[in-house]
Design a binder for these strands. Structure first.
Lengths: 173, 173
DNA sequence: TTTTCCATGTAACTCGTTACATGATTTC
DNA sequence: GAAATCATGTAACGAGTTACATGGAAAA
């Protein structure tokens, strides 16, 4: 339902076609949401069938026609419902990659260190990317701030684990 | 691969049957992993076919026989591989429930407040549950500490958002 | 002229869940 | 005697992804 909410929320502000919608999300919201193209197209046609949006074709030259989506009254009502549902519920974040740490004991510190450092690098890169995102309007800013905070915490936590590895760092670390 | 790693890691320490394995995970690891029964059974028989574990039936009375799983040499190798893969990769956490906050502007503060407070309550309950978990051995403790830290941050962040809602709290808040 | 962008979609697949089905045994 | 626990599984479904397929238009 989350992605429906997202699409409806964007269509409320402005009618758009599928490619445009997906492109917008990729460009400006990739730090907090992700929605692949086929999913976007699928959801849009589904919502069209459900009557939440209308589908208008617009030809330009010989290329595939744009399908422009416009939110309906029913869609607006659905948006309001989904928004309230979403705000009221807490969906715990799904962490991947914790299981390895459960078994960190089973591997020598000297071997674990470079692996965790590799993980650290990816994490730090992600954080740097989000930090460099230009400011966004409205409460979107809260969400970006949330992501930054989250990643900073992850980084600190990971650094702490690396620091506490039993084997001391080698001369290259 | 995460759940395979988990099962192999547990079977390394001690041979177990499916029900036992699932039960153990539910009891002692529910704060950081979740694995439903059918998934556990499915994964175990898959890994048996793959040769990572052996399956031994053990009858007791008239009840369904226990299928006891024992890790093989190939399984041990697979565990080592999966563990290294898992430690080296950073899997960004999947946040559900952020989309609503993107559209927080679209709803009056007076209406948003009780919804977010409901969310807050669930979150706080989750946090309290994890805090009350008895201490775990080994690096499992790191993971629990991670969950606690994460939830504390979430709570702070949410409180901050609630505090900054434009409409002031009513007499009941 | 080759690459990138625009614009759409289908089909197959992955991973995991829920719901359903069965029945013995232990505990209250 | 009823309820919870032990012990296994299958079938259907859900949500989303990847890979594949197509082809015009703009930019390099």
């Amino acid at each position: 339902m989350e992605r429906e909410l997202l699409l409806l929320g964007l269509l409320r502000r402005q009618e758009m076609h599928g490619y445009e919608l997906h492109d917008f999300i990729e460009r400006y919201m990739q730090t907090c949401v992700n929605l692949k193209k086929p999913t976007a197209y699928y959801l849009l046609s589904k919502m069209a069938k459900a009557g939440y949006v209308t589908e208008t074709e617009e030809q330009s030259g010989n290329r595939p026609p744009r399908r422009i989506y416009h939110i309906t009254t029913a869609g607006e009502a659905q948006f309001q419902t989904l928004l309230r549902e979403n705000l009221a519920a807490y969906h715990p974040a799904q962490f991947g990659g914790l299981v390895g740490l459960v078994f960190l004991d089973e591997i020598a510190g000297a071997e674990a260190r470079p692996l965790l450092q590799q993980r650290r690098t990816t994490l730090a890169t992600t954080l740097a990317t989000i930090r460099s995102v230009p400011p966004h309007p409205g409460s979107m800013q809260f969400v970006i701030a949330h992501q930054i905070m989250h990643l900073e915490n992850e980084l600190n936590w990971l650094d702490n684990i690396i620091k506490n590895l039993k084997t001391p760092p080698g001369p290259n670390d």
